[in-house]
Simulated scan of single mutants.
Amino acid sequence: MCNRIALFALSTALFSPMALAHPHSFITLVTTVIAENDQLTGLKMQWTMDEITSADLLYDAGNAKPDSPVWKKLAAEVMANVLGQHYFTEFWHNGQKVTFDNLPPQYGLARVGHQAVLTFILPLAHPQPLKGQTYQFATFDPTYFVDMSYDHNSDAKLPETLAKQCKISVKTPKPTEDMQAFALSLDKADAPPEDMELGKQFAQQVIVQCQ
């Protein structure tokens, strides 16, 4: 996640019973496929941060109204860091990575109760055909410092226009006991080897299949 959120999570982790284990921060995902003219053009994403991670952002926002420049500035800061990590998302078609446009057409940050909620559109660099195709994508923090996951399989959605043509499913991985033990052994300041892709081992895969 963005540096300011990660740093805050690091400091608060000291007071958590999970301080000596990854992950230290949690983001709940809701994703809707976007399609136009029988082509897949992007993903509409909603990321709800846990209350501890949210606290830093909500403190900075203070009592600012939803349309205040304060929220717009915070949203821009968070979004810039998300873009720096390629939306924390990988998207695949026929074994090849699908690239993204680095300028989201829409994004925003809001307060929902005691949580910060980031919403944005992840645009594909090029529209992808839907008919007879299968796509797979996952959203995750490679270091697994932040757990990014769907609470319910139904939180990965299709628009009504694709309901008859396509189906969507969420595949939750089952990491080995050794992998789980390794994640639990990591201190808040530890980082797993980059080539290990620890976060990917725990990442849910969303599969879109169209007729």
Rank of each mutant, 00 (worst) to 15 (best):
P105R: 09
M148A: 12
S25Y: 01
L29T: 00
T89W: 01
F182K: 09
S54K: 12
T89F: 01
L43G: 04
L83D: 02
T89D: 00
R4K: 09
S16Y: 06
A19D: 10
S169T: 13
L109W: 00
Q180L: 11
Q115K: 14
Q46G: 11
L158P: 08
V170N: 05
F91T: 04
Q136Y: 06
D147T: 02
D155W: 12
M1K: 02
L118R: 02
T161V: 13
C210G: 06
M45Y: 08
T41W: 03
H126V: 12
A64L: 08
W92G: 01
D67S: 14
V33I: 11
K44R: 10
A35Y: 02
A183W: 09
R4E: 14
M49H: 15
V208C: 02
V78F: 00
Q209G: 05
Q180W: 10
G113F: 11
G132C: 06
P192R: 00
K157N: 13
F140I: 07
A75F: 02
L130V: 07
P66M: 06
Q96G: 11
E36V: 08
T31P: 05
P129L: 05
G42P: 03
K171L: 14
D190Y: 04
Q106Y: 06
D187W: 12
V208P: 00
Y87Q: 03
A55S: 14
D147F: 00
P127S: 06
Y59M: 12
F120R: 00
K73T: 12
C2Q: 11
V70D: 04
L58N: 09
G42Q: 00
G132S: 07
S68Y: 11
L40W: 13
L83Q: 00
E160R: 13
E51D: 14
E90H: 14
F140S: 02
Q106V: 05
A138R: 14
D187I: 04
A64Q: 07
A156K: 02
V170T: 10
M196Y: 13
L10E: 12
A116S: 13
A9N: 11
A80W: 01
K164H: 12
L198M: 13
Q136N: 15
L83N: 02
A13F: 00
A21R: 06
V82A: 03
L43W: 01
V117T: 08
G108L: 00
T12A: 08
Q106H: 11
Q115H: 14
T41N: 05
V33G: 02
P129S: 07
C166M: 08
A9I: 08
N37P: 04
Q205F: 06
T119L: 08
I34Y: 07
I5S: 04
L130P: 00
I52Q: 10
R4P: 03
K44C: 03
N81T: 08
D190M: 12
L40Y: 04
N37W: 03
P23Y: 08
T139V: 13
Y59V: 09
F120Y: 14
D178A: 13
P69T: 05
L74A: 03
D151C: 04
A61R: 03
E194P: 15
P159Q: 07
M79P: 01
M1N: 06
P66E: 10
C2Y: 07
T119K: 14
T139K: 05
Q96E: 15
Q46H: 10
L29R: 07
K174Y: 06
A191R: 13
F100I: 00
K157M: 15
I27C: 06
M45A: 09
K65G: 10
P69W: 05
